[in-house]
Simulated scan of single mutants.
Amino acid sequence: MNFTGAICIAFVIVLVSSLALTNAAVEDEKVLACNPKELNPCSPAVKTGSKPSTECCAMLKKEEPCLCGYINDPVYGQYIKSKNAHKAFSSCGIPPLSC
């Protein structure tokens, strides 16, 4: 095999590897996309302290990796820090936040 052939093979390997890493990063980004509006089904539980709905618990579990980020948000932080929100977290099996 000549030098040019070896370079071409190396280039293809690097290209395929970088595409695989790029696709993995895109998939991770989709999974970790945070959207606080997804927590709208939890509004009654957070506002009144009532038992959270099944839909609320599902959304809390989906958004769990994002909750600490929401604490610093001026709009959502007050809700995430509230006593009723922590009751909802506990009721849904979300461990206490350690942000």
Rank of each mutant, 00 (worst) to 15 (best):
D28F: 10
P36S: 13
I80M: 07
C92V: 01
V75A: 10
F89T: 03
L67K: 05
V12P: 04
E27L: 04
D73A: 12
V26C: 02
E29I: 09
A20M: 05
K37A: 15
K87Y: 08
T54S: 07
L15E: 02
K87E: 12
C99D: 03
N72W: 11
F11T: 12
E27C: 00
S90H: 10
P95G: 05
L67E: 07
A33W: 07
I80L: 09
Y76A: 14
S98N: 15
A33S: 14
G77V: 03
S18P: 00
C57F: 00
G69W: 03
I94C: 06
K30G: 10
G93F: 05
K87L: 10
A24I: 00
D73S: 15
S82M: 03
Y79A: 13
C8W: 10
C56K: 04
M1Y: 06
S98I: 11
C42T: 08
N2P: 12
F11C: 13
A6R: 15
I13D: 01
C99N: 05
A10C: 03
P96G: 01
L97V: 02
F11E: 03
G93C: 12
I71V: 15
K51A: 12
T4C: 06
P44T: 09
L21W: 09
G5F: 06
T48P: 02
C57L: 00
T22N: 09
A6D: 02
A20N: 01
Y70L: 11
Q78Y: 06
L32R: 14
V12S: 09
L97H: 02
H86A: 10
N84G: 08
K61Q: 11
K62R: 15
Y70V: 04
S17G: 14
N2H: 04
L19V: 13
C92A: 04
F11K: 04
Y70G: 02
I9L: 14
L19I: 13
M1C: 11
D73T: 10
A25P: 01
I80Q: 06
S17M: 13
E29P: 01
M1S: 09
A24F: 03
E38R: 13
C34G: 08
C34S: 14
A33G: 04
A58L: 12
E63S: 11
C57T: 01
K30V: 06
N35V: 12
L97P: 01
K81V: 04
P74D: 07
P44I: 08
I9Y: 08
C57S: 00
C92K: 03
T48C: 02
V31Q: 12
Y79V: 09
K83M: 01
C99W: 04
G93Q: 04
